[in-house]
C-alpha cells in the first residue's frame, strides 16, 4: 500500500537534526529520515527506541550453548562412548571450545537474520528512495501525509524555515 510523503532534503546533517527536533515539537510525527550514514544524536531527536535485536543474540546464544553441550554429551557419553587417550566420556572441559564456537556462530547468524527480517531487507527488493542522493550526500526527512489532521502548508513552512533545501511531495511504498 503506498502513501504520500512530504520529503524535505538537506545537505547539512546538523540542519536536518534541528529540523527533526522542530518538526516534532510542532506536533508532527517524523516518519523516517534517510541519510548516507547513521547520524549521531538522531535517535533521541527522532525518539527512536533502542533496538531489541540484542535479545535475539542472547536467546539464540543460550539455546545454541545448550544445544552444543547436550549434543556433545549425547554423542560422547550416551550414543557411542569411545575411550580416546584415557579422557573421561563426559569431558565437559574439552567440550567448551565447540560450545563457544557454536554459540557465536548461531547467535551471530540469527542476529543478522533478525535484522534483515525486521528491517525488511532481502535480495531482489527494489529500494524505495524518497530523494535522490540519500545514499550519497543528501539527507532527507519524510513526514507521512495522513487523511486528516495533516497541515501540508504548515509542515512545508516549518521545514523550509529549518533549513530544508527542497520540500516535495512524493508517493512511495515503504
Amino acid at each position: 500500500m503506498s502513501s504520500t510523503f512530504l520529503v524535505a532534503t538537506f545537505s547539512d546533517p546538523d540542519a536536518l537534526v534541528r529540523a527533526v527536533v522542530a518538526v516534532r515539537e510542532a506536533g508532527f510525527k517524523v516518519y523516517d529520515v534517510f541519510a548516507p550514514y547513521p547520524l549521531h544524536g538522531l535517535d533521541e531527536a527522532m525518539g527512536v527506541k533502542r533496538s531489541r535485536l540484542p535479545w535475539v543474540t542472547f536467546c539464540v546464544g543460550l539455546c545454541a550453548l545448550a544445544l552444543a553441550l547436550t549434543f556433545q554429551f549425547y554423542t560422547s557419553v550416551l550414543d557411542w562412548p569411545l575411550n580416546v587417550g584415557g579422557k573421561p566420556d563426559n569431558s565437559t572441559l574439552a567440550f567448551i571450545p565447540i560450545c563457544f564456537e557454536l554459540t557465536v556462530l548461531l547467535s551471530g547468524l540469527a542476529t543478522v537474520a533478525a535484522l534483515f527480517l525486521r528491517a525488511r531487507l532481502y535480495p531482489g527488493k527494489t529500494a524505495a528512495l524518497l530523494a535522490e542522493g540519500v545514499t550519497n550526500d543528501t539527507f532527507a526527512l519524510a513526514l507521512r501525509r495522513r487523511e486528516s489532521g495533516f497541515d501540508v502548508h504548515r509542515a512545508r513552512v516549518l521545514l523550509e524555515q529549518n533549513g530544508a533545501e527542497r520540500v516535495k511531495e512524493k508517493e512511495a511504498e515503504l
Binding site: D32, V33, F34, A35, P36, Y37, P38, L39, L42, D43, M46, V48, R50, S51, L53, P54, T111, V112, L115, F116, R118, A119, R120, L121, Y122, P123, G124, K125, T126, A127, A128, L129, L130, V134, T135, A140, L174
Partner: peptide, 16 residues
C-alpha cells in the same frame, strides 16, 4: 537488499 538509507534501519544496523 533494497537498502534506502532509512534511519530506523540505520539504528538497528548499528546495534547489530
Amino acid at each position: 537488499l533494497g537498502w534506502n538509507g532509512s534511519h530506523r534501519t540505520w539504528a538497528r544496523y548499528e546495534i547489530v
